Amino acid sequence: DLRKKIVDLHKSGSSLGAISKRLKVPRSSVQTIVRKYK
């Protein structure tokens, strides 16, 4: 699940930009998912 991957990467200390590059999703999507998770 993409959300879980993003949250896991964020927990392990990756920046939003790094996560978005790695998973090839827009940075804004990463930000939204991380914000919802918090």
Score class of each variant (00 low, 15 high):
K4P: 03
Q31A: 14
Y37V: 08
T32A: 15
S14P: 02
V34E: 01
R22F: 11
A18W: 07
S28L: 09
D1R: 12
Y37F: 10
V30L: 04
V7E: 07
S15D: 03
R3D: 06
I19W: 00
S12Q: 13
R27H: 06
Y37L: 11
R22H: 12
S15A: 05
T32H: 13
K24G: 15
K11W: 05
D1G: 11
R35D: 13
K36R: 13
K36G: 07
L16C: 12
G13N: 04
P26V: 05
R27E: 06
L16G: 03
Q31F: 02
L16F: 09
K21W: 01
V25A: 03
I33M: 03
L16S: 06
I33W: 00
D1P: 09
G13E: 01
V25W: 04
V30W: 00
D1Y: 13
I6Q: 00
I6Y: 00
P26M: 04
S14F: 15
R27Q: 06
I19G: 01
S28M: 06
S20N: 02
S20K: 02
Q31L: 06
L9A: 05
K38I: 13
V34H: 03
I6T: 02
K38T: 09
V34Q: 01
K4C: 09
R27A: 07
Y37W: 12
K38Y: 13
V30D: 03
S29K: 15
I33Q: 04
P26Q: 07
Q31C: 14
S12D: 08
I6H: 00
K4D: 09
L16I: 15
K24A: 09
I19D: 00
S15K: 04
S12P: 00
R35I: 07
K38P: 06
S29P: 03
V25D: 04
T32Q: 14
R35W: 05
S29R: 14
K21Q: 07
K36S: 09
K24T: 05
R27M: 13
D8K: 10
D1F: 12
K11D: 06
H10N: 02
L16N: 07
G17I: 11
K5V: 12
A18F: 09
G13A: 01
K5P: 01
G13H: 02
L9P: 00
V30P: 02
D1T: 12
T32I: 14
S15I: 00
S14K: 13
Y37M: 10
R22P: 00
L16E: 05
K24V: 06
V34N: 02
L9K: 00
K4H: 10
L2M: 09
K4N: 09
S14E: 15
V34S: 01
K24S: 10
S28A: 10
K36P: 00
A18L: 07
L23A: 02
K5H: 09
S29E: 12
I33D: 03
S14D: 07
S15P: 05
A18N: 10
L9I: 01
I33Y: 00
S29L: 15
S29N: 08
Y37E: 07
Y37Q: 06
L23K: 02
Q31M: 05
A18Y: 10
K21D: 07
D1K: 10
V7A: 08
K24Y: 05
K5F: 10
D1E: 12
Q31G: 08
I6L: 01
G17P: 04
G17V: 10
V7W: 12
S14H: 15
V25E: 04
K11G: 05
V34K: 02
L9G: 02
K36L: 10
K38W: 10
P26K: 09
S28V: 08
L9E: 01
V30C: 11
L23Y: 03
K5M: 14
S12I: 06
L2Q: 06
I33P: 02
T32D: 13
R3P: 06
I6E: 01
S20T: 05
S20I: 05
V7R: 06
R3S: 10
R35H: 11
R35F: 04
V7F: 09
R3A: 13
K38L: 14
K4E: 08
K11H: 07
V25G: 01
A18I: 07
S14V: 15
R22G: 07
Q31I: 14
Q31V: 14
H10K: 03
Y37I: 11
A18T: 09
S29Q: 14
K4I: 08
K4V: 07
D8F: 13
L9F: 05
D8A: 14
G13M: 03
Y37H: 10
K11R: 13
K11I: 13
I6D: 01
G17F: 04
R3K: 10
I6P: 00
I6F: 00
S15V: 01
I33S: 04
S20W: 00
G17K: 13
L16V: 14
V34G: 02
P26D: 07
A18S: 11
V7L: 15
V7N: 04
V25Y: 04
L2V: 08
D1L: 12
K21R: 13
L2A: 05
R3G: 07
S15M: 02
S15R: 03
D8P: 01
K5Q: 12
S15H: 03
D8E: 14
R27L: 15
R22A: 15
R35E: 14
K5L: 14
R22L: 15
K21G: 05
L16P: 08
G17L: 09
G13P: 01
K4W: 11
V34W: 03
H10G: 01
D8N: 10
K36E: 14
S12G: 11
S28D: 08
H10R: 04
R22K: 13
S28Y: 11
L23I: 04
I19M: 02
V34L: 11
V30K: 03
L2E: 02
A18R: 07
L23Q: 02
I6V: 11
V7H: 06
K38H: 15
P26I: 05
L23D: 03
L2R: 06
S12T: 10
Q31Y: 06
I6W: 01
V7I: 15
L23S: 02
R3T: 11
G13K: 03
G17Q: 11
S29G: 07
L23G: 03
G13R: 02
R35P: 05
K21E: 10
Y37A: 10
I6K: 01
K5G: 05
P26Y: 04
A18C: 12
D8Q: 13
K36V: 06
K5I: 13
D8L: 13
G17A: 13
R22M: 15
S12F: 07
K5N: 07
V25K: 03
S12K: 12
R27I: 14
V34I: 14
V7T: 06
K21V: 07
R35Y: 05
S20L: 03
R27P: 05
D1M: 12
S29H: 14
I19Y: 00
R35S: 09
Q31D: 08
V25N: 03
V7M: 13
T32P: 05
V30Y: 00
K24D: 09
Q31P: 03
T32Y: 09
I33G: 04
H10V: 09
I6M: 03
V30A: 04
G13Q: 01
K38F: 10
S20C: 06
S14I: 15
K24I: 05
G17W: 07
R35M: 07
V34T: 04
L16Y: 11
I19R: 00
L23N: 03
R27V: 13
K11V: 11
K36Q: 12
L2S: 04
V30I: 10
L16M: 11
L16T: 09
L23V: 05
I19A: 01
K11T: 11
S15E: 03
A18P: 02
V7K: 04
S28H: 11
A18K: 07
H10I: 11
S12L: 13
R3M: 12
K24M: 09
S12A: 14
H10D: 01
K24F: 06
L16Q: 06
S15F: 01
R22Q: 15
L23W: 00
S14Y: 15
T32E: 14
